[in-house]
C-alpha cells in the first residue's frame, strides 16, 4: 500500500501515525466538501481552515515538521485570516443565492469533479503502486530545517529569489494601484486646524440656528450676532436674506 510505504519512510512507523492519518484524512475531506457546499462565505473559509490544518499535520506526520508548521502559520494563520478579514468587511449576511443561472451546471460540475478526482487518483495509484520511498534519511540527515535551508540557498537559490521578486512585485503593484498619494503640505494636523479655525475672518463658534436672536421665528430670518449684525450663515443658501419691515413685525391687532 502506498500509504504505509510513505509512513514507513517517515522514520519509525508507529501505530499512532496510521491512526492519526485515518482520523484526519476523513476530516480533511469533510472540510473540502464543506468548503464547497457551505452557503455562508465565512463558513466556507472555516471548512478550508480545517482542511489546511489537517494538511499541516500530514506534513508533520511524513517527517516534514518545518513545512507542516509553515503551512499552519502562513496559510492558516495569515492568508486565511486575511480572507476572513475581507469577508467580514463585505458583510456578515452575504450568502450565496440558490438560483442556478446556468442550467445543469451543478450536475456537470459534480460529474466533472468526480471524473477528475478519479483520473488523478487512478494515475497516482498506478504510478506509486509498488514503489518504495527512498532518500528521506539522507534528506533529513542533518535535520529537517537544515536540509530545506541547504537546498533553498544552494541548489534552488535562483528559483527562490525569483519567486520572492515576483511576490514583491505583486505586492508593490497592488499597493501602487490602491495607494492615494498625499503631499506633505496637504496633510493637516490638529494644531494647524485649530489655527485656521481661529484665524481672522473665520468665526470659530458654531453657527447660530436660524431664528435665534431674530425678530421673527421664520427660517428665512437671519440670526443676529452678539454685536447686532445679521449673519447670512444662519439661513439656507436658497432663501434670500430679508429683514422684516416694521409693519410686518408690528402687532396685527388680531388678539383684541
Amino acid at each position: 500500500m502506498t500509504t504505509s510505504t510513505v509512513l514507513a519512510a517517515a522514520g519509525d512507523v508507529s501505530g499512532g501515525e496510521e491512526i492519526t492519518f485515518w482520523i484526519l484524512a476523513p476530516l480533511a475531506l469533510i472540510g473540502a466538501i464543506g468548503m464547497v457546499a457551505a452557503r455562508n462565505a465565512v463558513h466556507s473559509a472555516l471548512w478550508l481552515v480545517l482542511t489546511m490544518l489537517c494538511l499541516g499535520v500530514f506534513y508533520v506526520l511524513q517527517a516534514g515538521p518545518f513545512i507542516g508548521m509553515v503551512q499552519i502559520i502562513v496559510y492558516t494563520g495569515a492568508i486565511m485570516m486575511l480572507f476572513l478579514f475581507v469577508l467580514m468587511l463585505v458583510g456578515r449576511d452575504a450568502s450565496d443565492s440558490l438560483i442556478e443561472t446556468l442550467r445543469g451546471q451543478r450536475v456537470a460540475a459534480i460529474v466533472l469533479g468526480l471524473g477528475f478526482a478519479g483520473l488523478v487518483g487512478g494515475a497516482l495509484y498506478r504510478a506509486m503502486d509498488g514503489t518504495t520511498a527512498v532518500g528521506l534519511e539522507q534528506a533529513n540527515a542533518e535535520g529537517n530545517v537544515q536540509g530545506i535551508a541547504r537546498l533553498l540557498f544552494t541548489k534552488y537559490v535562483f528559483a527562490f529569489e525569483l519567486t520572492s521578486a515576483l511576490l514583491i512585485t505583486a505586492a508593490v503593484g497592488a499597493m501602487v494601484l490602491a495607494h492615494i498619494e498625499r503631499r506633505k503640505q496637504d496633510k493637516v494636523d490638529q494644531p494647524s486646524t485649530m489655527r485656521a479655525r481661529f484665524a481672522p475672518g473665520n468665526y470659530p463658534g458654531p453657527k447660530p440656528g436660524p431664528g435665534v436672536f431674530a425678530t421673527s421665528s421664520s427660517v428665512a430670518t437671519p440670526a443676529r450676532l452678539p454685536d447686532g449684525r445679521l449673519t447670512e450663515r444662519s439661513t439656507p443658501d436658497i432663501l434670500p436674506v430679508r429683514e422684516l419691515t416694521a409693519q410686518e413685525t408690528s402687532l396685527k391687532g388680531t388678539d383684541q
Partner: peptide
C-alpha cells in the same frame, strides 16, 4: 525540532 514554530502557530491560530 521546530518547537518555536509551534508556539508561533498556536498564537496565530
Amino acid at each position: 525540532p521546530v518547537a518555536v514554530l509551534v508556539l508561533l502557530a498556536c498564537s496565530s491560530m
